[in-house]
Amino acid sequence: MKLTARVAEVLLVSGVLAATIAPPAQAHAPARAAHDVPLRVASYNIHAGAGMDNVFDLDRQEAALRAMHADVIGLEEVDVHWAARSEWRDVAGELAKRLGMHVFFAPIYSVGGREFGVAVLSKYRILKAVNHEITRLSTQDPNPVPAPAPGFGEVELRVKGVPLHVYVTHLDYRADPSVRVSQVAETRRIMGRDRNRKILLGDFNATPDAPELAPLWHELTDVDPGALTFPALKPVERIDYVAVSRGVGVRGAEVPDTLASDHRPIVADLSLKR
Rank of each mutant, 00 (worst) to 15 (best):
P23K: 01
V118T: 15
Y124I: 05
F116D: 02
K128I: 02
G112F: 12
T135Q: 12
V55G: 06
V55T: 14
R66W: 08
L127W: 03
E94L: 11
L58C: 05
V103L: 02
D53M: 10
P144I: 00
V16S: 08
A96S: 13
Q140M: 11
D36K: 09
A96Q: 05
N131H: 08
H47T: 10
I46N: 01
A67S: 10
I73H: 00
I108T: 14
P23H: 05
V145L: 13
H132V: 07
P107K: 06
A96C: 10
H81C: 04
A70V: 09
I108F: 13
R98H: 15
E115Y: 12
G49I: 01
W82S: 01
V16L: 14
M68R: 07
I126W: 06
P142A: 03
P30A: 04
W82R: 00
H47V: 06
I108H: 10
L58V: 11
V130F: 07
D57Q: 13
I126T: 04
V80C: 07
D53G: 11
S122M: 04
A106S: 14
V103Q: 04
D59R: 13
K123Q: 15
S122L: 05
A67M: 12
R32M: 13
Q61W: 01
L65C: 11
V103N: 01
A29H: 08
Q61K: 06
R40V: 10
V120K: 00
A50Q: 06
L127Q: 10
E62T: 11
S86E: 02
A18C: 12
A33V: 13
V41E: 00
A149F: 05
T139N: 10
L58F: 02
V120R: 00
P23G: 03
R98K: 15
L39K: 01
L58A: 01
H132Q: 08
W82D: 00
V118P: 00
A67K: 14
R98Y: 13
R114Q: 14
V120E: 00
L127C: 03
A149L: 08
F116V: 07
H102D: 07
G117Q: 02
V103Y: 01
A129K: 08
D36Y: 07
E76S: 12
H28A: 15
P142L: 02
A27G: 10
H81R: 13
R125G: 07
V16R: 09
F56T: 02
A25M: 12
F116W: 13
L137N: 08
H69A: 14
I46A: 02
I73W: 00
